[in-house]
Design a protein around this nucleic acid. Structure first.
Lengths: 247, 247
DNA sequence: AGACGTTTAATTGTCTGACAAATGAAAATT
DNA sequence: AATTTTCATTTGTCAGACAATTAAACGTCT
């Protein structure tokens, strides 16, 4: 094991890449212990600090975990869906904010993906999922709820919908899309009438899933999507007008 | 700026988290230069090595980039969709392999997501997208193509379909689902007849999109999904039988 | 003044060596 | 046999050094 010292990349990046490839290819199975930092530094012929930087890179991606002590070391981490959610959400949120993705685009993606879940959710939803969805709808109806709390509950409702599809791959992929929308949703002010409309649709969606009625659920999601889009547009239009007044 | 040295986490993890939060919250805008490693080590009251390990963690997530030299340093990175694709694919692939997700589950997720794209793709597909899809379908028909090359072309076809939806958020989310399927697809042996059926469906899908016919495209995707599932089942059943014979 | 090479200062990348802290295993003690 | 102590191993942190890189500042020549 030797590393090209003339490459354009850092040594620690190259070493991280080498170990990452070994993990992805399956050469290093889950829970396998890597050689100690000292051993790795000998194998790659670099200093221990360089090896450590490489290991930190891998740890940041949850590819390894480390443990101190006599029997400690770095171990290949079983990447769990729950662990990946956080990273997925962070990345999605940053992607949206840093690339100034429009509300329209993000909303379109989110509802397109949710509609993909609806038929499966209608088939497989458990009493638990329905209870969660209805509890969130109820929470959304409480007076005195801040816009942020309303949005947070909205996210919880939609996550329950996605989870009802009982497909971990879908849940993982959609966690990013749904949660990353929250900052954008928070830019909207919801009037009492707006909220009532949304809560009504939420309740109807829960009912449709209860009845295993995929078509109705899908139609309701389309309504919700359209309503959200129009709401956002009117809010942004109002703001633009206000800005024009000031100028 | 001080870090709790008694926390359960590593100092470098805490510092990385602090900087990450500053980036996510927008306190550190894109292209902003972080203080130099020496300055950071003074601010956080830790050694330079610890700061470096923290920075490597952030670099592994593409949150920062570093540059050497007089005007160098660490800069907040604009996270681009293209950069995020790679990580998304790596993570998705590992999630599937490490959690032994069944072919059925992964396939279901993939086609559910693709069907979500179909209506948008039917509306917005450009001549470019159609050309790519048809070129891949043509490649798939070439004799002597290995199963792996066939699968790779299949992935390229479906990526073109997803990209035709012209929604970067969807493209990003689906890149993981589509690409992560490839290792699973590679486990299947495609007979000439299997390939012909798939290529025919691919061609029909391209035609449906050409005609802006979302419903037909959707129906074809359902067919393709069902066919892939049945193909996988028969392959796995045959293997199980063979294994039982040997035993 | 402007073009062109040189020096210089700042910054990251790498290395070395050291010690602290954690942790399980082995040894010693009760 | 149970408990305590010791010990070896390994990661976490620190300090200091030097190399490599880079752009700006400086000089020099035309």
């Amino acid at each position: 094991m030797k590393i090209d010292p003339d490459s354009s990349k850092d040594l620690s990046a190259q070493i991280a890449a080498a170990i990452r490839d070994a993990i992805i290819s399956g050469k290093l199975p889950v829970d396998e212990r890597l050689p100690s930092e000292t051993e790795l530094s000998e194998q790659f012929e670099v200093s221990r600090s360089t090896v450590r930087e490489a290991l930190k890179r891998l740890a940041a991606q949850s590819l390894i975990r480390t443990q101190r002590g006599a029997t400690g070391g770095a171990f290949v981490n079983r990447l769990r869906f729950e662990d990946a959610y956080g990273q997925q959400i962070t990345t999605s949120t940053l992607l949206l904010s840093m690339n100034s993705v429009s509300f329209r685009t993000a909303c379109e993606a989110r509802y397109a993906l949710e509609r993909a879940c609806a038929p499966l959710a209608a088939e497989r939803r458990t009493a638990d999922h329905l209870a969660t969805m209805r509890a969130e709808a109820h929470r959304q109806a409480q007076p005195g709820l801040t816009d942020e709390a309303f949005c947070a509950s909205d996210v919880a409702f939609h996550r329950a919908l996605v989870d009802a599809a009982a497909n971990p791959v879908l849940s993982y992929q959609l966690a990013g899309a749904v949660e990353a929308m929250q900052p954008l949703m928070n830019m909207i002010t919801f009037s009492a009438r707006d909220r009532a409309t949304i809560i009504d649709l939420h309740t109807q969606i829960a009912n449709a899933l209860d009845q295993h009625d995929a078509e109705t659920a899908d139609a309701l999601l389309v309504q919700l999507s359209d309503y959200t889009q129009s709401l956002a547009e009117s809010v942004f239009a109002a703001r633009a007008a206000q800005k024009a007044d000031v100028t």
